[in-house]
Design a protein around this nucleic acid. Structure first.
Lengths: 235, 235
DNA sequence: AAGGCGAGTATTGAATGCAAAATGAGTCCA
DNA sequence: TGGACTCATTTTGCATTCAATACTCGCCTT
């Protein structure tokens, strides 16, 4: 009978909110990004149906969509699992994202509108505050927002969609790897450089800085993954 | 009662063949790419169910997946349509693809294996034959295969998936715009240059040539779209 | 005691049924 | 004649049901 449960607020976000399966896609993606469903975890359709108070039909539709986006793995007749963390794939994601970051650098300088620039300055300032306060959680969120804004400023929706998807796939990892405060400081230094280049309208410089920033972040993430694995197998 | 219809061979392709909805995704994508379902056409669930001999459940799952891939537009409560051709979006696809082409150029030289190189040479030769025979249909297919091989040679599956998706979205257009023989010749000249750079292992040169090739192709497609639109509204 | 084997259970995949929304035709009124 | 309204039909979205496959656990054999 599927009682109504409005307390299941979660993160009511974005599009598709009019259809049930659209809402489930959003909520489930939230669960995946928040780390509530950890990588590799088996996904029980019945559990999720209860949690979202929907029947299996819209839930399964949502699973197919998230699988197409790379967040879930469907194993025919054997259920679904949250996409496991594969260091090789992560490396590929970062490498590919590098090419996009470069284009974002080249385009954002030319296409950004005043409101984009204002928002970037604002987010960058907040980012600085999060860094001085040594708040990795806030920093991660703002960092995500900063790069999203920059990507948006490039004025190419096709690019933006792919970029956001890749970012989200990476974001999932932040609960798997312990945040590193050194990397946080270094990251902000790079962000300062990025903003300098952006303000100056130095396209190539900005592109290179973004590519490098991406590369270093990727290395840090992969190192954290390795360290953690080593710790696990060592203990 | 959903009779079996093995004559519905279509293009039996790839993964997900074990589940019904996976098969439908493949077949339906084939229909979209082959132009059988033209851009903007309304999609009748009942029709497709009859055509594929499946019930609405797996069909609707397939529609959701193809919508996530950008081939279909879902309008809540109002059915689905084949993604209409939007020149602005096409331009964005080409622009974004340019960044990927560049990376393909940079990586493929370093990572391609002997079999990749052999296959590229073979396809390139066939491409030359299609050009001399003035066969645009064969040329388009081989061109698709060529760029797919090159992208694969870059050795990054994440890149490859996004790249193939973008290529397919563009491929849909070839039935909307009339093939231009001049562009075909020019395209092959560019391909010759691409192969020269590839054989020489000239990373940057190859990257630039691929980017330029993409840019020119995009311009030709957009011009064809404009011309056609002008013709339509003019007549 | 370890490794297969098989019945019972749980879970997935697909078809059917049902309610709500949208579409379209026909009618009425200005 | 044109436009808005009503009601029947179609179509969509979701829940439920049914069938098939995979898993679990106890039993048997060696």
């Amino acid at each position: 009978m599927l009682h109504d449960d409005p307390s299941d607020a979660e993160i009511a976000l974005e599009e598709g909110a009019s259809t049930l399966h659209g809402q489930v896609v959003g909520k489930l993606r939230g669960l995946l990004l928040s780390g509530e469903l950890p990588s590799g975890a088996r996904i029980s359709e019945a559990d999720l149906c209860r949690r979202f108070s929907v029947s299996r039909t819209p839930l399964r539709e949502a699973l197919k969509v998230l699988a197409a986006e790379g967040f879930i793995e469907l194993r025919p007749n054997r259920g679904s699992v949250v996409a496991p963390i594969d260091p090789v794939e992560i490396a590929h994601v970062f490498e590919f994202k590098g090419a996009i970051e470069r284009q974002i650098g080249l385009l954002s300088v030319v296409r950004s509108r005043a409101e984009d620039r204002a928002r970037l300055e604002r987010v960058h300032a907040d980012l600085g505050a999060a860094e001085t306060h040594r708040n990795p959680v806030a920093y991660t969120g703002l960092n995500q927002e900063f790069h999203h804004c920059l990507a948006k400023a490039a004025g190419n929706p096709v690019l933006l969609q792919t970029y956001d998807n890749l970012q989200k796939r990476i974001l999932r990892l932040r609960f798997a790897v312990n945040q590193n405060l050194d990397r946080l400081d270094q990251s902000f230094i790079e962000h300062e450089g990025i903003m300098v280049a952006f303000r100056a309208g130095a396209r190539l410089d900005l592109a290179e800085r973004l590519e490098e920033h991406n590369r270093l972040t990727g290395e840090a993430v992969l190192k954290a993954l390795r360290d953690q694995d080593a710790g696990r197998s060592g203990v």
